[in-house]
């Protein structure tokens, strides 16, 4: 096993760990806002480590550029997703409370 392969394995295992953590968080956390926190961990770190590992393994500059773009877009999309869903849920809760108060 070469040193590159070893690093790939380590990166993939760490990425898998974060995906497991994210999935368990989405399953076990009590409310939506803490689940969002778990989701962004899987998005940022899990995908980031797996992307790094695969970029090392494939070792082609064009593929590495694509993988980097995938990760950057995911970072952007996942943080915006987090904000948008949380904002949406807050508004929905307020609407609901107002309706019950009437």
């Amino acid at each position: 096993m070469t040193i590159v392969e070893l690093i790939t394995v380590i990166f993939l295992v760490v990425g898998c760990f974060f995906f497991l953590a994210g999935t368990l968080g989405v399953l076990r956390f009590p409310d939506l806002f803490s689940r969002l926190h778990a989701l962004t961990k899987a998005d940022n770190l899990g995908l980031g480590f797996i992307a790094a590992g695969m970029a090392l393994h494939i070792a082609s500059p064009w593929a590495a550029l694509k993988i980097l773009l995938i990760w950057l877009f995911t970072l952007l999309a996942s943080s915006s997703t987090c904000y948008l869903i949380a904002h949406f849920q807050k508004e929905q809760d307020q609407l609901k409370n107002r309706k019950e108060g009437e």
């Binding site: 989405v26 998005d43 797996i50 695969m54 869903i85």
Partner: peptide, 19 residues
């Protein structure tokens, strides 16, 4: 948000499959 998690997991699977 779970669907979003599936999408990200799917992307990771696709990357590993590509390799």
């Amino acid at each position: 948000l779970t669907t979003q998690l599936f999408g990200t997991t799917g992307m990771a699977i696709l990357m590993v499959l590509a390799g």
